[in-house]
Amino acid sequence: MNKARRNPANTLAMHGALILYTCIALFPVFVILINSFKTRKAIFREPLALPDADSFSMIGYQTVMKQGDFFLYFQNSMIVTVASLFFVLMFGAMAAFALSEYRFRGNTLMGLYLALGIMIPIRIGTVAILELMVASGLVNTLWALILVYTAQGLPLAVFILSEFMRQVSDDLKNAGRIDGLSEYTIFFRLVLPLVRPAMATVAVFNMIPIWNDLWFPLILAPAEETKTLTLGSQVFIGQFVTDWNAVLSALSMAILPVMVLYVIFSRQLIRGITSGAVK
């Protein structure tokens, strides 16, 4: 090994650079979180100080709980995200199986057709999507969002899952066929359990953009009872813009669920990205 790789000054410089950037990345989150637990006076007098016995206050959280319906928003976000992920995985896996397992006329064409949506953002079609949802009476229902996110997630899901399904051994499937299993049983009982890691990757990739989206909730489901957490906090903060305690608490409460998801799934997410699933 050469010296450059072991040079302590080099190692120090590398850690220095990484620590500096980690601070830049975490600083805003840190500032929001600590100040959400402080009195209004303390927020302005010493914004960078940790809350102590003197400056500690939950007044912001109390305002948020009283004024905003954050539990409802959270529940809506949860329903939309989980249902969309379910349909993306279910329909995506079925289509991926059809494309990777069977030879039929138009197979390649169908694959290309489904792959189109990987690069073209679904937002371009918003005007017509809204018209469609109005015509079908789905505006201001969670179904509008679930359908849109399912359509948005399918192209990449089909692409990734069919790559993985090609690797499932043919012998296994043929053994199943000889035993008289139907194609459906082969798919659900034999193939799906084997591609579970790939399904987890697809789920994690889709989860965060769905949870964080502001555009479609704003356009398709802005009613009070269908607001997602992202839209709900946006509207809440807009109304309480001068109440710094409430704004900081609302931001902290919006950060919390994503952070919990991230802590649970970060390993999966990072493995998914670094294993080249998005090539």
Binding site: F87, M90, F91, G92, M94, A95, F97, A98, L99, Y102, F104, M110, L114, L116, G117, I120, I122, I124, G125, T126, V127, A128, I129, E131, L132, L147, V148, T150, A151, Q152, L154, P155, V158, S182, E183, Y184, F187
Partner: peptide, 26 residues
């Protein structure tokens, strides 16, 4: 092969109805 149709239909229908059709309609 009906099972191929069954496997493909949900994804193709949702994708076509909510993504491709509105795109061209826009």
């Amino acid at each position: 092969k009906w099972h191929v149709v069954v496997f493909l239909a949900p994804a193709v229908l949702v994708y076509t109805a909510i993504m491709i059709f509105p795109l061209f309609n826009t």
